[in-house]
Amino acid sequence: MKALVHEYGELKVKEMPDPVPKKGEVVVSLRFAGLNRRDLYIPNRRDDNEEALIIGSDGAGIIEAIGDGVISFQVGEEVIINPALRWYENSDAPPAGFDILGMPDHGTFAEKIVLSAEQVERKPAYLSWEEAAVLALPALTGYRALFTKGQIKPGDTVFVPGAGSGVATYVIMFAKNIGAKVIVTSRSKHKREQALEIGADKAIDTNSDWVEELKNETIDLVIESIGRATFNRSLEVLKKGGRIVTFGATTEDTITFDLRSFFYGQYQLFGSTMGSREELREMLKHMEKNDSHPVVDRTYSLDEAQAAFEYLEQNKQFGKVVLKISE
């Protein structure tokens, strides 16, 4: 089978052995796979002497084969991949043994993948293949950050620095679905306009004076993923006693902030990573109930993966970038 691998310090498409299911496993013939920012970092986390690893965390396809003991799925069923490995029940933090698909396990940027039947869910019928392929990792990340950790409720105002990321598009949609107000930022006028089109109530320039721009707003919750460049600015506009949830750091991941001001303001800070299967299933029900569709920015073929990586690295996208694996 054809696969995109990182091998001996190089990212390339090559032939890999077809996978065979063991007991409790399924083989999925992938149609599309979703590109995530995590995929950009994996080559930098591996040594140049390591053998081929198929990267990729998100994908959707059709079950081609099942191993002994699998009774929950049949050959021919359409499924999505749950990349949050071995995290089944909602909990305050991931359990021991949790990993994200795509390192150290082989991932989704291949014509086929073998994995535990516990890691696949039926594809929502109302979604296209491209939409389903970009669903699990960013939507689950946004859902847990917003609901489980952020405890958002109708009437709250949520502030999201960086409107163009895949997770941000889901956060906008999910918050609006329950009747919250959403304010986002972006340096790009085009991305600000796109954020308003999918439901954001207000979109401001990242380079503007946030305190001035938001002086008439009460920010109940901040969903942060940028890091040093925006963290303190986000904290500055958050109401006293408000909540800030951070799930990533696209800029520097170490920050300093005024601890005395923090505890006097009685702010609440939460870390969040991915989510459990329980939350994934809740999220899928939430999306179907509200007819929510993922935002797909651009689709590339597997052979064009390098161009897709470069496009994502330049932060040009609004929403998700997809790799077409097969017809």
Rank of each mutant, 00 (worst) to 15 (best):
M1D: 09
K2C: 08
L11W: 04
L11V: 11
L11P: 00
E15W: 06
M16H: 06
D18L: 13
V20Y: 12
V20T: 15
V20H: 13
P21R: 06
K22H: 13
V28W: 01
S29Q: 14
F32H: 15
F32D: 15
N36W: 03
R37P: 06
R38I: 12
L40H: 13
N44T: 13
D47C: 11
D48K: 15
N49A: 15
I62F: 07
G67V: 10
G69N: 05
V70T: 09
I71Q: 14
I71K: 14
S72I: 09
S72R: 14
F73G: 02
F73T: 07
G76C: 09
E78D: 09
I80T: 03
E89K: 13
E89G: 08
E89R: 15
F98K: 08
F98Y: 11
F98G: 01
D99N: 15
I100P: 04
I100C: 02
G102A: 03
P104V: 05
P104Y: 02
F109I: 00
F109Y: 11
K112H: 13
A117N: 11
P124T: 01
S128H: 09
E131F: 03
L135Y: 01
L140Y: 05
T141Y: 07
Y143Q: 06
T157C: 13
V160Q: 03
P161D: 05
G164I: 00
T169I: 04
V171I: 15
V171S: 01
I172T: 10
K176L: 10
I183H: 09
V184P: 04
S186F: 01
S186L: 03
K191P: 05
R192E: 00
Q194M: 13
I198N: 04
D201M: 04
I204Y: 00
S208D: 14
N216T: 15
E224V: 03
A229I: 01
S234D: 08
S234L: 07
R243A: 13
R243G: 12
T254M: 13
L269I: 11
L269K: 05
L269D: 08
F270G: 06
T273D: 07
E278V: 07
R281A: 00
K285G: 10
K285I: 12
M287K: 00
V295E: 05
V295M: 04
E304L: 00
A305D: 07
Q306I: 15
A308F: 06
E313Y: 12
K316I: 07
Q317C: 11
I325P: 01
E327D: 14
